[in-house]
Design a binder for these strands. Structure first.
Lengths: 195, 195, 195, 195
DNA sequence: AACTAATCGAGACGGTACGTCTCGTCTTTTT
DNA sequence: AAAAAGACGAGACGTACCGTCTCGATTAGTT
C-alpha cells in the first residue's frame, strides 16, 4: 500500500557531495577571490563532476546564494532575540551584527559576488529582485514597522529608509570599505527624522 | 625658455579609431548587455585591432569608465550652475538630472557594468576607490558643504550623507529599479535632519 | 588471467573528430600550402574546437607527422614484399614508389612541412631525430643489409649510404624538383661501389 | 664645389644602418635561434625602423640569404686556391672547409633557416631555386668537371653527384648532426665510381 | 538476492573570449 | 629622399572556462 509520500525509486541525492560543493565554493571564494571562482575549480576541489553541479544549480550565482543563506541564517540564529530600547539601538545592533558576519565569514564576499554576478544574467537578476532581495529587506523592515507602531517614526516612507540603509551597506561592501561604529550610529540616527 | 612643445616624431594616435572603439562599446553595451560586451566584439564592430585596444586601455573596465565619463561630463555641462533655494531642492535637481542621464544614455548601464566588473579585478577596484569614486562624490559633497556653510545642515557627518545617498542610487541601479520623484524627494528630506 | 583491458571510465575519445582533424589538415596543406596551414584553420574546417586539437597534439608538427605516417603506411602496405634480383633494382623500386606516393598524396607536402617546421622547435627536432628519422631510414637500411649479407655491397659504411640517399631525396623534395627515372637509376648505381 | 660625381639630391642609403641590420640578424639568429628571429626583433636590436627594413629586403629570407653570402664569401676568400691531387682530396677539403664555416659562423644556422623559410614562401623558393642554389652548386660542379676532364670520373651524371652530395650536407644540417671526417671521406669516395 | 533506475566521477567535446605576438602597411617628423 | 618612431588592422597563437555530452561504476529501494 502506498503511504502517499511518493518514495523515490532510485538513488537519492548525495548529501555529502552537496556539502562538499558548497564548502569548496566557500574555500575558493575566500582564497582565490571572486574572479577565480569557477565551476570547474569547484568541481576540481570538491571532487564532484561538473554535470553534477549543473544538475542541482543553474549557475554560479545560485551556488553563491545558497552559500550566503547558509551563513546568514547562522547569523540570524545567533543574534536571536534583540530587546533594544529604541529603533536606533536596534538598527545599530543589526548593522553591527551584519558587518561582523560579512567580515568574519565568507558571506560578505559571497554577497558581493552575487551583486556583481547578477548584473550579467537577466534571469538571475529577476530572481534576485523578486525573491532574494525582499527576504533580505524583511528584517530591517520589521524593525522599522515596530518603531512606527510605537510612534518612534512618523511621516516617513519606510521603503525609502530601507533603500538607503541597504544602499549604504552595499556601497561600503562594493568599495571594500567597512563602515565605522560612528558611521553606523550616524546612519541609525537618520531613520527617526523628527521634522 | 623653450617650453618644448614635445612634438611626436611618429604617427599620432588615431582620433577616429579612439572614437570608434568607444562608440562600439556603447552600442554593444546597449544592444547586447553587459555579459555580451567583449573586447573581441568591440574590436569587431569598431574595425580596430585587438592589440590597439589593449594598447590604450588595460581592461574592459577602463573603457567603460571613459565611456561613462564622456556621457557624465555632457550631463554636467548641460545642467550647469543651478542656484536652487535649498539643499533639498539642489539634491532633488541633481538626482533627477542624474537619473535622467542614466536612463537616456548608456551611462547608467556603463556605471552598473563598472560596479560589477571592478569586483573581479583588484587593481581596477583600487583605481575605482582612490580616483574614480572621489570624483563622482565631489559634486554632491560640494552641495552639502555649501548648505553647511549656510547653516542648513548642522551636526551631521557629510561623508555619511554622501555614503547613503550614493548607496541609495547604486541600490536602485543594481536592482534595475528607477526611484520615483517621490522617493527622491523623500531621500532629499533626510539630509537636513535638524534634530 | 585477466589482462585488465583497462576500460576507460569516461567518455571515449571521438574517432570521428580525430579523423576530421587529420583530413582537414591534409586538405588545407594541399589547397593553401604550408604557410597557410594553421591550427585555427584546421579547427575551423574540421569543426573541432581548438582546445581539442591541442589536447591530442602538442603542435602542428605532430599533426603533420601523424598525417605523413598514415599516408606512408598505406604506401608500405601496398608495395608489400618486393623480391627484386639486386640492390639496385630494390632501391629503384623503393625510390620510385616513394616518389609516387609523395606526388600523388599529401605525404610529400607533409614531409616537406615537417622538415621546415622542425627547424623552429628544438623539442620537435629532438623527437624527429631520435624517433622519427630512424623509422624512416629503417626500410632502406634493411635493403642494404640484405645486400651486404649477399655480398653485393662490400667495404662500405651503410649509414653513409642511407645519409646521402635520404639527402638526395630531401634535396629534391625541398627544391620542389622531382628526380627523373634516370636520376634514380644513377643514384642506385652508386650504392654498390665495388672499388 | 662639385666634384663631378653626380650628387644625389637626397639622403643616401645609410651604410651603417644596412650593416647594423645584418649584424643584428646574425646576433639574434645565434642567440635566440631561428624561431625567435623576427623582423621586429631585428628592428629593435639594430635601432632601425621596420619600414626601413622592408624597404630594402622583401622578407626575412632575403636578409638571411645576404647574411649567408657575406659569411660564405669570407670562407671562399680564405680557402683560396686549393691544389689537391685528386677529386676525392678536393671534395674532402671543400666539405671540411664548408662544415668548419657552418659550425664556426652563423652561416650554418642561416642556411638552415633559409631552407626552412623558403618552404613557406613560393616566391622566395623560386628565387632560391633559380638563382641561389645554382650559385652554391657551382664550386662543387667545377671540381667535378675538372676531374671529368682529367679522366678521374667516367660515365657519371655530374648533376646527380652534386644532388646527392648537397643532399648529404643538407641532411646533416637539417638534423643538426655534423658529419665526421670519416663520413666525409666515405662520401668523397663515391664520386669516382669506377664501375 | 537480484533487479532497477537515478546519481555520481570522470573527462571529451564544440565553443567563445582571453591577452599576446608578429606581420606588413601607414603616417608623421626629423635629418 | 631617407630614416626613426611607432600606430594601426589583421589574424594566429596557446590557454581558460563554459555548458553539454557520453561513459562506466555506484548505490539505494523495490521486487
Amino acid at each position: 500500500m502506498s503511504t502517499g509520500t511518493s518514495k523515490k525509486l532510485s538513488r537519492p541525492r548525495s548529501v555529502a557531495t552537496h556539502e562538499a560543493i558548497l564548502s569548496a565554493a566557500a574555500t575558493l571564494l575566500e582564497s582565490k577571490g571572486h574572479a577565480r571562482l569557477t565551476i570547474e575549480g569547484i568541481a576540481r576541489l570538491s571532487g564532484a563532476g561538473k554535470p553534477t553541479i549543473y544538475k542541482w544549480w543553474p549557475n554560479k550565482t545560485a551556488i553563491l546564494m545558497e552559500l550566503f543563506d547558509r551563513e546568514a541564517s547562522m547569523l540570524l540564529a545567533i543574534e536571536g532575540v534583540n530587546s533594544a530600547e529604541s529603533v536606533e539601538q536596534e538598527i545599530i545592533a543589526w548593522f553591527t551584527a551584519l558587518w561582523k558576519a560579512w567580515q568574519t565569514t565568507v558571506s560578505g564576499a559571497a554577497f558581493r559576488s552575487i551583486l556583481a554576478e547578477v548584473q550579467f544574467d537577466p534571469q538571475a537578476l529577476q530572481f534576485f529582485n523578486k525573491t532574494y532581495i525582499p527576504n533580505r529587506r524583511r528584517h530591517l523592515l520589521a524593525i522599522l514597522h515596530k518603531a512606527q507602531a510605537r510612534g518612534e517614526i512618523q511621516g516617513r516612507d519606510l521603503n525609502v529608509i530601507v533603500d538607503y540603509c541597504c544602499g549604504f551597506n552595499w556601497y561600503h561592501l562594493l568599495t571594500h570599505s567597512v563602515p565605522s561604529a560612528k558611521n553606523i550610529r550616524e546612519i541609525a540616527r537618520t531613520v527617526r527624522g523628527t521634522n
